[in-house]
C-alpha cells in the first residue's frame, strides 16, 4: 500500500512539474502534450521501480516528442497516452508505451545505426526510432496498414523512415546488414535470413506473447565473432517464488 502511495505521490509531483514547464515553454504543442508528459513520467517511474537502470534519456526524449495520438484510430485518441496497448484495426495493436520504450532501450540505438523493423503496424515504433538512428527500414504485410503508416510517417516528417509492403521473412537484403532489428510480433521461429542480416555486434529484439499481453522480450545479440546468443527479458521485476529475492 505504501509503495502504491509512493508511486502516485512521485508521479503526481513529476506530473505537476512537467505540466508547469510545459505550460510555460510549449505554447505550440497539441492539447495532448500534458497527457504525453504524464505518460513519459509514468514510464520513467515504472522503469525505476522495475529495478532496471533508467532508460536511455535519448529514448525517453523520443517517447516525449512522438505524438502517439497521431498513430491511433480516432476512436482511440482519448486513450492514446494511457500506458496500454490499443487496437488499431486489422487485428493489430499499437504496443504499450512502456514496452516500446523498453524494446527501444534494449537495442541501444546509436545515431549512425541502420535499423530494420518487421511489422510497421501504425508506424509508432518506427517514429520513436527515427530521431535516434540514421535510418529506419520498415516492412509490413498488411496492405492497408502499410499504406496508412507510410502516409502518416511522411506527413509527420519522419523522413529517415522508409516503408515497404512485403514479406519480412527475408528481411531487406539491399540495406543489410543492420545494426538493429525490431520485430514487432513473434512468429513460431526467428527467420534465419534476419539473423544473417544482423551486423556483428548488432541486436534484435522481439516481443513474445499475445497482442495485448507481452510475456517476454527476446533479445538476440550477434557477437563480434558472429556467435548468436539470446537473452529472454521479462519486462517486469517478478520473482516467481515467494520468499526468494
Amino acid at each position: 500500500m505504501n509503495l502504491y502511495k509512493k508511486i502516485y505521490r512521485n508521479k503526481a509531483a513529476v506530473f505537476i512539474l512537467l505540466a508547469t514547464v510545459s505550460i510555460g515553454i510549449r505554447a505550440d504543442d497539441t492539447p495532448y502534450a500534458l497527457d504525453r508528459d504524464a505518460m513519459v513520467a509514468e514510464i520513467e517511474e515504472y522503469a525505476r521501480l522495475t529495478g532496471n537502470q533508467a532508460f536511455d534519456q535519448r529514448v525517453m526524449q523520443a517517447m516525449a516528442s512522438v505524438q502517439r495520438h497521431e498513430f491511433v484510430p480516432d476512436v482511440q485518441k482519448r486513450f492514446a497516452y494511457e500506458n496500454r496497448p490499443l487496437p488499431i484495426g486489422f487485428g493489430q495493436t499499437i504496443s504499450q508505451p512502456y514496452i516500446v520504450a523498453l524494446m527501444t532501450d534494449l537495442i541501444a540505438p546509436g545515431s549512425d545505426d541502420v535499423v530494420l523493423e518487421i511489422g510497421t503496424g501504425s508506424g509508432y515504433q518506427a517514429a520513436i526510432l527515427s530521431p535516434l538512428v540514421k535510418s529506419v527500414y520498415s516492412m509490413e504485410i498488411i496492405e492497408p496498414l502499410a499504406e496508412q503508416a507510410a502516409a502518416r510517417l511522411q506527413t509527420l516528417g519522419f523522413d529517415n523512415v522508409t516503408t515497404r509492403l512485403g514479406d519480412g521473412y527475408y528481411g531487406w537484403a539491399e540495406h543489410a546488414p543492420f545494426d538493429a532489428i525490431v520485430v514487432t510480433a513473434a512468429a513460431s521461429h526467428v527467420p534465419p535470413s534476419l539473423v544473417r542480416q544482423l551486423r556483428r555486434g548488432g541486436r534484435m529484439v522481439i516481443p513474445v506473447g499475445g497482442r495485448f499481453l507481452t510475456q517476454q522480450l527476446l533479445l538476440i545479440e550477434k557477437t563480434e565473432t558472429g556467435e548468436v546468443k539470446t537473452r529472454q527479458v521479462i519486462p517486469v521485476r517478478f520473482v516467481p517464488l515467494t520468499g526468494a529475492h
Binding site: Q96, Y98, F238
Partner: peptide, 17 residues
C-alpha cells in the same frame, strides 16, 4: 494483487484472461 500492481509495468503477460 502483485500482478495487478505490475500490469502497466510490463507484467500484463502474467495474467490469464
Amino acid at each position: 494483487p502483485e500482478m495487478l500492481s505490475l500490469r502497466k509495468r510490463g507484467g500484463a503477460g502474467l495474467f490469464e484472461w
